[in-house]
């Protein structure tokens, strides 16, 4: 018990209410990475995790600066840092890819978000999305639209760019038991039915049905 406490105090993120050990933090990052990779839409940003991990990495790298070259321990630490950095960048990259793919919808969602609700995008991602939108519009105007007849010169990005397909199927593993998940029928002849998701079981079903569970962390996409 005292071990867990002393480890937890290592984590410099005092602002987060739930105290996490660095080990849990890395596990959380990996969860977020896989969820982001497999969900068809952009998920809520996890900037607190990203920031904490970044802090851990810089902290560790600073410590390694002081170690002499050729030290076995240092090389092991470096390998671990590389692995964590890979997960972190892959996570951020898959978010950027989704922003590029769905930018008008991402920005629309951001606009319609109620005051006080946490944003789906981190400030950096928001800036990126806005810039991407502006650049795309300028590009389309410069290359094609200005040569069009005047009545065809406007373009509605929301219609021009496909929406994320929430009806995609996803593979998932259940982390917290869920009861009565409604499965919608595929055809009109079939009836809808409910399933219970047992802890630890794995399923294939539509993302739309379980999207709230992904957000709450009750299921993990795999």
């Amino acid at each position: 018990m005292s071990d867990a406490l002393s480890e937890a105090s290592d984590l410099s993120g005092d602002d987060s209410q739930d105290v996490m050990t660095p080990t849990e933090l890395i596990a959380k990052l990996e969860e977020a990475w896989l969820n982001e990779k497999f969900s068809p839409e952009l998920l809520k940003n996890k900037s607190e995790i990203v920031e904490c991990v970044m802090e851990q990495l810089t902290h560790m790298e600073e410590n390694l600066q002081r170690v002499r070259k050729g030290d076995v321990k240092a090389s092991i630490h470096r390998m671990e840092i590389d692995r964590i950095r890979f997960v972190l960048s892959s996570y951020l990259r898959s978010r950027l890819q989704k922003i590029e793919k769905f930018f008008p919808h991402v920005l629309e969602k951001e606009k319609s978000r109620a005051e006080g609700d946490p944003s789906f995008l981190s400030p950096e991602e928001f800036a990126f999305a806005k810039e991407y939108m502006a650049n795309t519009e300028t590009y389309l105007k410069a290359v094609a639209l200005r040569h069009m007849p005047p009545n065809l010169q406007t373009i509605d990005m929301l219609k021009a760019v496909p929406e994320p397909c929430l009806d995609s199927f996803v593979f998932l593993r259940v982390k917290e038991r869920q009861e009565n998940i409604l499965v919608e029928p595929e055809t009109d002849e079939q009836r809808e039915y409910v399933v219970d998701l047992e802890e630890g079981s794995q399923h294939l079903m539509r993302y739309r049905t379980i999207a709230p569970l992904v957000a709450s962390g009750a299921v993990q996409l795999i």
Partner: peptide, 28 residues
């Protein structure tokens, strides 16, 4: 059978991965 839900206990990530892209894209 046009199912909407399947239980896949004991299936490993690598196994899912062999069919993921093909299966999910065809379903879509």
């Amino acid at each position: 059978q046009l199912e909407a839900h399947a239980k896949l206990d004991n299936l490993t990530l690598m196994e899912i991965n062999t069919t993921r892209t093909f299966l999910l894209d065809s379903l879509n």
